[in-house]
Design a protein around this nucleic acid. Sequence first.
RNA 1: GGUGAGGUCGCAUAGCGGACUAGUGCAGCGGUCUUGAAAACCGCCGUAGUCUUUUAAGGCUACCGUGGGUUCGAAUCCCACCCUCACCGCCA
Length: 419
Amino acid sequence: MLDIKFIRENKDLVKKGVTDKQFDPSIVDEVLKVDEERKKLQLEVEELRSERNKVAKAGKPQPSEASRGKEIKENLKKLEPEFDKVDTKFLELLNQIPNLPLPNVPVGKNESENVEIKKVGEIRKLNFTPKDHLELGTKLGILDFETGAKVTGSQFYFLYGDGALLELALVQYAMELLSKEGFLPVITPDLAKSRFYLGTGYAPKGVEAQTYIVEGEDLGLIATAEVTLAGKHADEVIPENELPKKYIGYSHCFRQEAGAYGKYSKGMYRVHQFTKAEMFIYCKPEESEAMHQHILEMEEKIYQNLGLPYRVLEICTGDLGAMAARKYDIEAWMPGRNDYGEVTSTSNCTDYQARNLNIKYRKKDGKIEFVHMLNGTAIATSRTPLAILENYQNEDGSVTIPEVLRKWMGKEKVEKRNK
RNA sequence: GGUGAGGUCGCAUAGCGGACUAGUGCAGCGGUCUUGAAAACCGCCGUAGUCUUUUAAGGCUACCGUGGGUUCGAAUCCCACCCUCACCGCCA
């Protein structure tokens, strides 16, 4: 959420940001209106409580005071629920105001106005018609959606042999590279309490649209390790000298993806479960822009080393979503669709998530302030293997393994298995 | 899953209905002393919200695992839940 004080004092600025994000700016006026109501009620409640405390402090049973005390109690019994109701409504509305875009973010209505900031790598010219990853993987016997559908449901898959090894190799590659860059490798739980899968904004509006929820418990399957890594420091005050904290988290990710079908969702591009190595950084406000560039650099390094052609997009205001103040996506070339497709996304959420989760840091001078929080994909297995299969395919249907992964795969090429 | 013990201010502890405006110790910050340091001594030292106010400062409210309840008054009593520790059971 945003700081209500900031909203009170910068109404027009907030409205502009909200408008640029393609949210309805009237929400800002609504919040301020309910805020006034809330403050009024709060004052009444606090005055009553103050009197109650005085009466109580006067000591023993004095008959007249006791009856006044009873009266106050009755009044509070009516007023407090009223305040709670308004307060709840206030928070609900406040949470609907998205994070504001940073000043240099390109203004645009939707994804069509995202800005391509660079293109890297050369697209291989093939002298044969490329197959898509689904056909390649299925024929190689390493990818099996049919059994996934049988056992679990549509858009789930089994990996066999080199398919399984490729996923593990990618994760190990990313973990090794990033731990050398000062990121702490973390394996997190794959489930989290609702406070965290909601508090990180993964389901702020459509709520259950993305998240699988465990019946009878306050638990859901995480959509990304961002949820657990952000929850890790909830309600903490981090000493300044421990910042920045850099994590590379490993988890499985679960998304319902309700209604998300279509030709671009084919095969591994959009699935209900995948594995991901996710970078996550907590830092001081003044260094968050630099940290964001740092994450993007790491992502580029990974895709360069994997030898995958890609482009970098700066996401425009209208496509940022609620949490991000700035966002970059990397799209890798995917011959199967003859187009680029998203493989990573890195967001600077500034202090928006930190305010939801109450994560602060103590400065050297003793002052306490909210941290900035950033996240970025290192490897999303399903989409990265997809890009590898399609870009490294040979005419005979075999797939050459990228050099950096060979030490974990123990071979240079994936070929058809008999069994 | 069962039984028992426990969750109090950064840490450690006290607290068993009205002297709690949550005490004490440690750590931290400032000072005196010292060539410097240590020690000793003195002072300061939670978070959030809100009101008065230009600021500064002060007042008020809430917070003793979480949520309810009893009472004029709850850290303290009652109920439910969560977590930690120990032992037992069950399992990779």
